[in-house]
Design a protein around this nucleic acid. Structure first.
Lengths: 220, 220, 220, 220
DNA sequence: GATGAATGAGCGTTCATTCAT
DNA sequence: TATGAATGAACGCTCATTCAT
């Protein structure tokens, strides 16, 4: 439309685009308000009214963008899960099949995600736990994919080294274990307490531990 | 009182004892009802009335034994935490400073706790997450102690082998990591899905991984 | 229990009875408040809070006695239906198979029910119309029974006179018609306007009309 | 305007006419959508958004044509009332002062209105009952006119037969009664249940009953 | 004229908690 | 001690209505 000479049509197009942009912005504003409040007051502690207030819209508007409170958490969760996989999962998927790459991917969980987005961390590992079957399903879907990212990297590592796993599910079990380690370390040292030691030292210890565990399995 | 010759006092004593016993029983009945309902309906999904109903007492009675709903969860959590440390933490504390002992202690988490008490598992790792500052504090206190159990075993292992940690907090970090592994493995394979592979194989993979990680750290 | 000499047991019995009485009274108080408000503000216009206020109880108490707003209307409707059948339907059921008895029964609809209970009249013929499938079903159930009362009287009249109906459903159709007459007359002259003529004259006209219709059918 | 030679004005006129036609069409489309939804979901169950959706216009457009929801019901009600008086009331008004004509007019209520427009039937006798003072007033206005149609026919019948009424309001009372009969018969056998007997048999029974009632009153 | 995003008062309902008996 | 009826604050949610575009 922008190509033809019709001024009006261009105007329409412009205003439609602007409306689209505003719509997207409002959606994000509400999501951001929910993120902030869910993290600080807890999912149940944050009322829809307070979320609307913080987003500077009316309750009705929140319900215009999200079906209900659970839907809001669900979308927030998916957004966070996407961010986490974008920042960290992608590192595992792109890792160059070296131990160094694998460790760096793990490191990015702490440096790129946890410290930069403590609220997202709190929501994905604390607020969304056990809230409802739907949310739990979404959490599982995310974790399965994230575990898949890690397992994929492990498999590529094994391939490169020409070694194989002890059992069919070993790679998956290790991926689950590694994700569990990351999760609890973040919970312990970032949600529950400030890291008394430097977080990078903590990550380094954990990653060396993982590296050793893998090397040993592979007869290193 | 029961020792003196006063018949009446002995009777009183008897009935006092009986009352004491009944009291304790009621307390446990309510706790058991809460455990069942929290695990199946979720903490928020289980109302005090339904808990009272299942325990075959009135709501008022529940409030006689527990200050409020959070207090009920708190006591339940502590009971479960006690059981878990009794069954598993004790193994770490008593481990004979051999790798075998350390692994067996880890194994008992799955065989003695998770499979035998799936409801306790759901409550401690799902239902009590992020419910309130008080509950979080209780969860943290438990996990700190449990992590201490594991760290203690690690330290004894290191002593025996005559090796030392890379950093001051390394043992703690590893303990946190190991507990995180256990937690997520249990969540993944027991709360979210039936283990497609045999649970003992899963535990064996994880424990070998841990063993390797430690050995490697220690220049094994 | 009151028979044995045990004073305490009598006391318990007394207080239990009193509680029972109070319970019943509260139930009736709430029902009465709802009747008043539904009649004056309409079913949708009357909020649960206002009903509670008028009954001098809390909202929670209303919900203790009634599952929800529809349930409240349903119970009210049934109570009113019972009253109506007690006052009027019974007259039809007991009518002595004379035209006089039949007409007197019809008269009692106006004199015993409509004028004495204008609020019940408004609820059963106005407020409960088309409110929900459940309420509609209850209304139908009541009307079917009431129509049955009238049809029964008609059949007894016919028997006595040794006449038979033109068709299988004629008695029912006439009963439906007669009930419809009563209903609309009451709506017109008592809900919508004060009877410009004397209500008893109106009833007399209608009843003579009915009498004539029946006589004529029977070759009178 | 279309008559003058001004081409432009004719074009304007044409488009003005077209616009006028479209306007009328939109109005009717919305009314039809409301009729359908009020009948199937109930007045309160049908939201303005769903009505707009079904009419394939926006909510704003509905509010352009109708002041508010009550206004929409009011217009719908008047439209239906007009149809009913057109189809049935007119028969009473035009009845040739014979009993046959009077009965045929009554018959047309069932054959021309109820069976052909079950949704209109539901709205006028169920959905618009007790919705608001304004709607009740409109309902009353319609029924008064309809009752007037019937009363007029009755009066002409009486005139022809050279008989007079027992009382001043007798004709009106009978008209109200007859309308009530029709209303409830339709509600009972068309809204609540399929007629187990043939509807025309039902109507025939009712009309014979009426005929007899009248004849008898007039010393027939 | 038409749009549809935005509003917000108001609703029905829940449930942890209390307290007279 | 035990009861369970009573409380009422607080919640999630709806939907008729408005108005800038």
């Amino acid at each position: 439309m922008a190509e033809n000479g019709n001024g009006k049509s261009r105007v329409v197009s412009k205003s439609a685009l602007r409306r689209q942009r505003e719509r997207e912005q409002r959606y994000q504003t509400i999501l951001a308000a929910a993120e902030k409040l869910f993290a600080s007051e807890g999912y149940h502690g944050a009322s829809m009214e307070r979320i609307a207030e913080l987003a500077e819209v009316s309750v009705g508007t929140v319900y215009f963008y999200f079906k209900n409170k659970e839907d809001l958490l669900l979308h927030l969760l998916n957004e966070i899960a996407y961010t986490l996989r974008e920042l960290v999962g992608s590192k595992f998927r792109q890792s160059d099949a070296t131990m160094e790459g694998f460790k760096n991917a793990g490191l990015s969980f702490f440096s790129e995600f946890c410290t930069r987005y403590p609220e997202k961390l709190a929501i994905i590992f604390r607020e969304s736990v056990g809230q409802s079957p739907g949310v739990e399903a979404s959490r599982k879907a995310f974790l399965d994919k994230f575990i898949g990212d890690v397992a994929g990297a492990l498999n590529r590592l094994a391939d490169t080294l020409g070694v194989s796993w002890r059992r069919e599910h070993t790679a998956e079990v290790l991926a689950v274990s590694i994700v569990g380690m990351y999760e609890r370390l973040a919970y312990q040292y970032l949600i529950w307490q400030d890291p008394s030691a430097d977080l990078m030292d903590i990550a380094d210890d954990a990653l060396s531990f993982i590296e050793g565990g893998l090397k040993n399995l592979w007869g290193g």
